[in-house]
Design a binder for these strands. Structure first.
Lengths: 184, 184
DNA sequence: GTAACTATACCAACCGGACGGTATAGTTAC
DNA sequence: GTAACTATACCGTCCGGTTGGTATAGTTAC
């Protein structure tokens, strides 16, 4: 191997950015190549098809997810709080990847949808391990999902209405565990 | 004047179905026309452009949203519970419309994104009127959003994991109001 | 009352552009 | 000399939109 495949990484990153910022429809092969500063031929040298590109995104995402799950497992603040907090983070590499995968899933890429299901299942398991009760775990997952949906949506409604309230929200999350007792 | 424009309604319904079931990319003019049992030309007679079709969906959605907000305002079980419950309903006309608008928003249709922001703001206001505390209202909105995100996602993970747990969840929602006191 | 005309509600065929993908010939860095 | 590209040209397909036409029902003029 002579030179390291610099283009491969750049193309993947550009494609993810396009998916996040412009949507799946705008994320064409040529647009990805241009944004990556690579020729279309160069892109297709590394990713033989658009499907292969999507697979590349998913593969790269899986690595980030695995790291996140490890951190979540060992988080001092608990899995639930960690999960909600990271769901609200916009600028991490993991979130960029997950938004991209979400876009792919909604565009009909089956493996992307499957991956999201799998990730959700793994998140749920860790939260369930912490909080014990399935209904509470359900609640926590939904809150994270809700935050996530806002991030994945174009527009700034979330920013202007919930900004700064995140800290307050995170303080409420550990209290959710008490709900079950309260309910009985 | 003469015949009623039967095609118009059928086309709108077909386009919404396509957006929900197959995604924005598959929701082409020809696909919508075919599903509506109309020629492409016939479709374009009623909706001069794809943009006009989207506008038709949004307009139709606005009517359903208005009805829902009225019902939410007068719901005996309270705005929060009503909101979460209806967020989990898959088969209503309103949800079909909202999923369609969401798909449009993520495909870059600005007016669709604007509408969703507006609807969220109105939902939040009603919930805030009920629960008083902004952080709790925040929480409720996010739970509904989370449910909604699952519905809008292809795949059946939600069905197999959360099915039947909705009742339990809905019982927890009114308890959320107590969180604030608990926290102090 | 009927012929001429208008408006509505479509359909079928086509056009231009974009996009995914192929092919090929040449270039650069190690 | 080989992996990692660039550059360009091209093909088939699909998609949004245009055009030209048809059928039907109501409206007007006489």
């Amino acid at each position: 191997m002579a030179r390291p495949p610099a283009a491969r990484t750049k193309v993947l990153d550009a494609y993810i950015s396009l998916l996040c910022e412009e949507g799946e429809r705008a994320a064409t092969l040529e647009a990805a190549a241009t944004r990556a500063g690579v020729s279309k031929g160069g892109l297709l040298y590394h990713f033989a098809s658009k499907e292969a590109l999507a697979a590349g995104v998913i593969e790269s995402t899986e690595e980030h997810v695995q790291l996140d799950l490890d951190r979540m497992h060992e988080a001092a603040e608990g899995a639930s709080v960690y999960y909600v907090q990271t769901s609200a983070e916009v600028d991490t590499e993991l979130d960029r990847h997950l938004v991209a995968v979400q876009r792919l899933a909604q565009a009909g890429v089956g493996s992307a949808a499957a991956m999201l299901e799998d990730v959700h299942a793994r998140w749920l398991q860790l939260i369930l391990d912490e909080v014990g009760d399935p209904a509470i775990a359900h609640l926590v997952i939904l809150i994270g999902e809700g935050l996530y949906a806002h991030l994945a949506m174009p527009g700034s409604w979330y920013q202007s209405n919930f900004e700064g309230r995140l800290k307050e929200l995170l303080e409420l999350v550990p209290q959710l565990k008490k709900l079950k007792e309260l309910n009985e």
